[in-house]
């Protein structure tokens, strides 16, 4: 296979005496959808936090495009084109979708007004509208607060915001957890569309059929370690569950 886009080797992360990661490894290749699965407490969220710069691993190394990498903040991950859709969404409920999409990356008016920090709201609304359409976020109106949207629409906004800024890789921590059937399908569509644009997607999910339907590869975490790697096309739900529960291990996975 080609050179991994993002690779983690032997990460450990301790919270006091709790070992959330015990030598976890992880690999994502360019332009693929790779699912990261594991039982509750397996360390998925911690691993994603370490890979997206939110937390720093206690030990272990990260590689980006083959180069060693230190992520000291979410911003340094973002600078590399790595974005994250967090499980708790993290949107500002009182701001409208366009404001949320451009939060922290506002477009300013040209000239003197821009120097004074004046926002170009029209441009942001227009670009946001285009973008939401492209990624299938259906909103009745672009200028209502996020809080007035349904859970699914909020989710679409959070997903669309991240993929808008990702040029290399997007982490999605259970992006379909709170969604209805239709919206779930739509998010899966978005995931595929993002991959087709050459951006790698790391999907964290508890839904095995969903994982198999959308992923190219699957990596399994158990007790803070990678215990198995599969190609999605030649594995099954039984095999995945076996790996998650410890019934099945691959010697070469760690």
């Amino acid at each position: 296979m080609s050179q991994p886009l993002l690779e983690a080797r032997d990460l450990t992360k301790n919270y006091g005496t709790v070992e959330a990661l015990r030598g976890a490894s992880f690999t994502a290749y360019p332009g693929e959808v790779v699912s990261l699965i594991g039982d509750n407490g397996a360390g998925k969220s911690t691993l994603v936090k370490c890979l997206s710069g939110v937390e720093q691993p206690t030990s272990g190394t990260l590689f980006f495009d083959g180069e060693p990498l230190v992520l000291d903040s979410p911003n340094s991950a973002r600078d590399l084109g790595i974005e994250t859709v967090f499980q708790d969404l993290a949107v500002a409920p009182d701001l409208d979708p366009a404001a949320n999409m451009f939060l922290g990356r506002e477009i300013l008016k040209p000239g003197v007004l821009g120097l004074l920090g004046v926002l170009d709201k029209k441009a942001m609304r227009r670009q946001a509208a285009e973008h939401f359409t492209r990624f299938g976020a259906t909103l009745q109106s672009i200028d209502v607060p996020i809080a007035a949207l349904s859970g699914g629409q909020r989710q679409s906004v959070a997903v669309a915001r991240s993929v808008a800024w990702a040029s290399k890789l997007v982490f999605m921590d259970e992006p379909t957890a709170a969604l209805g059937v239709v919206q779930r399908e739509r998010v899966l569509e978005v995931i595929k569309r993002v991959r087709d644009e050459g951006i790698a997607v790391v999907l964290i999910s508890h839904n095995m059929p969903e994982v198999l339907s959308v992923s190219d590869r699957v990596e399994v975490l158990r007790l803070g370690r990678r215990v198995a790697r599969f190609k999605a096309s030649d594995t099954s739900v039984e095999e995945l569950v076996g790996a998650m529960t410890g019934a099945l291990t691959q010697e070469d996975a760690a």
Binding site: A90, V91, A92
Partner: peptide
Amino acid sequence: SNEEAARRV
């Protein structure tokens, strides 16, 4: 509106 969201962006 959401301090955590602001921090994360």
